[in-house]
Simulated assay, not measured.
Amino acid sequence: MRIFTLLSLLLISLLAQATVYKWVDKDGKVHYSDEPHPKAEVVELNEKTQNQIALPIPSVSNEPTTKAEPIKYQVIITSPQEEETLRDNNGDLDVTVTVTPEIKGKLLFSLKLDGQTIGSPQERPIFHLTNIDRGEHTIVVDAMLQNGKVFASSQPRKIFLHQASVH
């Protein structure tokens, strides 16, 4: 019984190979079929006409895959220095900042003195403050995009402002 089934399957597989016919109609369209057609010619198929795709062998790495970390921007107050004592009787103070890595495009900078925002955001990374009271102050500078979203802030910088006293 097994031999009969095996022979039947072999015979069916031999009959399953069909002839392919090709013809061109009056509009110039090329047609292919497994049924004969007037003016059709037999297409000989060989193994080179079969599509074969060779996939590259995947490489196996023992290193764990890591996702690209987002860029961490830093706002650095370059002037005045940490715990610097400034002497100015008018209470004038200049604050300079930089952003690393450098960003192309327009940024806005906002300065906070003792937790209070001073003025409106500006494009220049240099602030000129006037009439600041003497004593200890904390400075923080925020860098923001044009839409007002803060993307980086400086570390708080403590400074001391001294003014000459009449007493």
Rank of each mutant, 00 (worst) to 15 (best):
N90H: 11
V42S: 08
K104G: 13
T49G: 11
V166K: 14
I77T: 02
E69F: 00
K158V: 15
V42I: 14
G119M: 01
S110I: 02
P64V: 13
P121F: 04
S8L: 15
L161N: 03
S79V: 07
R157C: 07
P56S: 04
I139H: 02
S153P: 05
Y32L: 11
E47T: 05
V24M: 07
E41Y: 10
Y32C: 05
A16N: 01
K106N: 14
E63L: 12
Q17A: 13
I76R: 08
I3H: 03
Y32I: 05
D142R: 00
D133H: 07
D133V: 12
K26G: 08
I76L: 08
I118W: 08
S33Q: 05
T130P: 03
I103T: 07
S154P: 02
L145H: 13
L86W: 03
A18G: 09
N51L: 13
G28Y: 00
V43F: 04
T96W: 10
L129I: 07
E84V: 12
R124K: 14
N89W: 00
E63S: 13
Y32T: 00
A40M: 05
A16T: 10
T98G: 04
F4K: 13
L86E: 06
K106M: 05
S33V: 01
E102M: 11
I53K: 07
L7I: 15
K26Q: 14
V166L: 15
G115W: 00
S59F: 10
D27F: 04
G91S: 04
L129M: 08
